Simulated scan of single mutants.
Amino acid sequence: MTTGPLSGIRIVELAGLGPAPFAAMMLADLGAEVVRVDRPGRRPQRPHTDVLNRNRSHIVLDLKKPEGVAALLELVDRADVLLEGYRPGVAERLGFGPDLCLERNPRLIFGRMTGWGQSGPLAHTAGHDIDYIARTGALHAVGRAGGPPQIPLNSIGDFGGGGMLLAYGVLAALLERSSSGHGQVVDAAIVDGVAALMAMQYGFIADDYWRDERGVNTLDSGAPYYDVYATGDGRWFAVGAVEPQFYAQLLEALDLTDLPDRSDRANWPTIRDAFAARFAERTRDEWTAIFEKFDACGAPVLSLLEAPHDPHNIAREVYLDIDGVVQGAPAPRFSRTPAAVVRPAGSPGRDTLAVLTAWGVDEPGKLIESGAAVDDTD
């Protein structure tokens, strides 16, 4: 990478799943030089489809061998950031914990990604996105009134509360280092990030505006003017007309009059029935064309395959096609130092010899001969 606001930043990423690779992708998209360190034996059949691993160099080190750990520490000596997503204590046990790494490289930012955090009674237990959002209240809040909690993919926990939090923490630590000259450990826990994402809802609860129930509040499908409706062709249309001026536009778009006052929640079922009946009269695309004439906060519900073909998304280049794999473009946008997707995800070991040589690691050829490193150049 030669462009992007993080150009010149060197990051070593220890291979993992989900949130840590997402953080590394975000940082790599913004121009950081990211080297992903995989363990031996991982050979995906179609590595270029693993979008989370784009814009990286891919090397393989055997961290169960002293020579492999020694090579990793040489990379750490030359890095700005190390990212790992192991359970607490694993990095220390393998011989590259934060104390050792920061002793060798005092300017290093040591980013740690876990679900439960580095401390607490659950810190050493297993978990996935669904468990973390369950314990932080987020899962309880998602779903229809009277129904079970609904799983919002793994976007809230793994990526919003996890990987994005880690990237945010690393950037903050890099900024602080520019004045102090010192690195530090970033403890990014999904439970912490999800709790932060729920800030508005907790504020609403404190203000007696939000009930601790699913599907009865303004933004959780409780309000008829913030919901999705089936259209005549079996598809869906979303409306989010929260503010009065947008609600007025919504009523005009739907050609509905004489509805009861929406400020009285007792009237919500009547309003919802009227909206549902009206949306059922036309197809989703017909409603899309109608709503283009109004500022009513309405939008068609597009599938994952449809979204890249939406006119707005095309005009803004929200999605890219890299080697036949459609994926979201780097974000956010920068006026002077634009980010770019330069390399699709690669096979583990594709760049081992090149990276070890470029980073000045001692005798990379011998490391490969010993099996402590694996080079699998495409």
Rank of each mutant, 00 (worst) to 15 (best):
S119N: 11
R211D: 14
Q184S: 09
P348A: 06
H128D: 08
L175Q: 08
T288H: 04
I271Y: 01
F334Y: 14
L174I: 10
I205G: 00
V186Q: 06
P348L: 03
R78V: 13
R87M: 11
A145H: 14
I322L: 13
I314D: 09
L166W: 04
L171E: 07
F22D: 01
H48W: 13
L175P: 00
A71K: 00
R54C: 11
G161A: 12
M25G: 01
W236I: 02
A230Q: 15
M164L: 15
P260L: 01
E281W: 01
D255I: 07
F279I: 08
D29E: 06
P224E: 03
H48F: 11
H140M: 13
D99N: 13
L174K: 07
H128N: 07
P308K: 08
L82R: 08
H182I: 02
A91I: 09
N313E: 12
H182C: 09
A230V: 09
S303C: 06
R87L: 14
V191H: 01
A241S: 14
A307Y: 05
R272N: 03
P348V: 06
P40Q: 11
F275Y: 14
E306R: 01
M113C: 08
P308Q: 10
G160A: 13
G89T: 11
R262W: 09
A277D: 07
K293I: 00
P338T: 10
P224Q: 04
P88T: 08
L166P: 07
V142M: 14
F237L: 00
T218M: 15
Q184P: 07
P348C: 04
I133Q: 07
G157E: 01
G371D: 08
A354W: 02
W359T: 05
G143E: 06
R333K: 15
G169F: 03
Y226G: 03
L6V: 03
S57N: 13
Y229Q: 02
D227Y: 00
N55A: 09
A223N: 10
I156G: 00
E243C: 10
V81W: 02
A199Y: 06
G95I: 09
S119K: 11
P47L: 13
T377R: 15
G162M: 07
P98E: 05
A331T: 14
S303H: 02
D192I: 12
H124T: 14
W210T: 00
P88R: 08
P149Y: 05
A172C: 12
I190Q: 00
W236P: 01
H312L: 13
R107E: 13
P269K: 01
E363N: 15
T49M: 13
G324C: 06
G117V: 12
F291E: 09
Q184D: 03
I133N: 04
H140R: 09
